[in-house]
Each structure stands twice: as structure tokens, then as C-alpha cells.
């Protein structure tokens, strides 16, 4: 820990924060996949479940940092641990995408899929969100506790900055520019 906060056990530092967002993601995905089975008998309920669970999926994957990271932070997790916690659902989701892709591609094709814009996008978003969450947590910590800590350390700044660069690049023109660069690179390398 880079400042004075009582370090709780690994269960509270890592397992619970990760468990909360992963559980949210798993429940949301399963509810979402179950909802269409109700569409003929309970159309309204089916639509409501779809909407709620889709929101749950989005929050757990793209904004899960704001849930898991503060929990880890205030449990005294180290920066490395906070990193692991923040990336839990984005990594699981990315692996899920890669597993889906592995039914079609293998070898270099599959390896290059790691640079797929959605994967780089979620990595960038997670870094950006982690940087923001880190700053907010440090501000709260400074107000709550009588310790003086720096709100914007070099590591936090770098995390925030990398995320800030990747996210707009990934999203520019709806992500199409980055996508075409990705495909051009693939074509250049593999065909």
C-alpha cells in the first residue's frame, strides 16, 4: 500500500470486489439469455428483463471498475491488486470473445484478435475509469482520514493518460477508423 490505510485480508482486498462484479456480469448474462424464452408468454416481462440485464452487463464490463476498484482501494489493496481487480470483468469478457473467435480462427489469426478494437477499447476504458476512480478514492480518503496523500501520483496519472488516449482513438468516428487500421494491419501481416 502506498499510503496509510489498514490492509484487510486478501478475501476483502481482492476476492469480494472481483466476486461482486463477476457475479453481476454472470447473473446479467444469464438473465439476458433467459429473457427471450418468455417473449411469447410474458412479452412485457421479457423486455423488462432484457433491458435490466443488458444494463447489468454493460455496467459490470465497461463500468465495473467503479464498483470493484473502490472496494479494493478502501480494503487496503496495493496498486497491483487494484489493477487486477479493475480488470477482472473486462479480461473475462475479452477471453469470452476470444473463445468465441477460437471456433473460427487459430494460430496467428487468433493471437491478432487480441488487438481487436473492442478489446483494446475495453482495456482503454478500464484504464481511464481506473484512473478516475483512483483520483476520486484518493480525494475521499484525504477528506475522511487525517493523512496527507497525493491525489495524482505519477502512476495514477499514467494510467489515466493512457486510458484517455486509447478511448477517443478507439471511438473516433464510431470506432470505424480504428477498426479499419486493425484490418489493414491484419491484411499486411497475414495475407
Amino acid at each position: 500500500m502506498d499510503f496509510s490505510i489498514k490492509q484487510k485480508n486478501v478475501f476483502k482486498r481482492i476476492v469480494i470486489p472481483v466476486g461482486v462484479v463477476v457475479l453481476l456480469m454472470v447473473i446479467a448474462i444469464n438473465v439476458y439469455n433467459y429473457a427471450p424464452t418468455l417473449v411469447q408468454t410474458h412479452t412485457g416481462l421479457s423486455r423488462a428483463l432484457s433491458n435490466i440485464s443488458a444494463l447489468g452487463m454493460f455496467v459490470s464490463i465497461w463500468l465495473g471498475v467503479y464498483i470493484a476498484h473502490p472496494m479494493a482501494f478502501f480494503a487496503g489493496a496495493s496498486m497491483k491488486e487494484r489493477f487486477v481487480v479493475s480488470f477482472s470483468t473486462p479480461v473475462i469478457w475479452s477471453i469470452k470473445l476470444l473463445v468465441g473467435s477460437s471456433a473460427i480462427y487459430s494460430g496467428g489469426d487468433l493471437a491478432f484478435w487480441v488487438f481487436y478494437p473492442l478489446i483494446t477499447g475495453v482495456v482503454g476504458a478500464t484504464l481511464l475509469n481506473m484512473g478516475i476512480s483512483e483520483i476520486i478514492c484518493r480525494m475521499i480518503f484525504s477528506k475522511r482520514y487525517p493523512y496527507s496523500i497525493s491525489v495524482l501520483t505519477p502512476s495514477v496519472f499514467i494510467i489515466f493518460l493512457i486510458g484517455l488516449i486509447i478511448v477517443p482513438l478507439s471511438l473516433y468516428k464510431g470506432g470505424t477508423v480504428f477498426f479499419y487500421i486493425f484490418v489493414d494491419c491484419y491484411t499486411w501481416l497475414f495475407s
Binding site: A35, N51, A54
Partner: peptide, 8 residues
């Protein structure tokens, strides 16, 4: 189909 199908 539902509104969020594009995301899954």
C-alpha cells in the same frame, strides 16, 4: 430481437 442484441 431486443434492443440490446447488438451488444451480445
Amino acid at each position: 430481437a431486443d434492443n440490446w442484441l447488438g451488444l451480445v
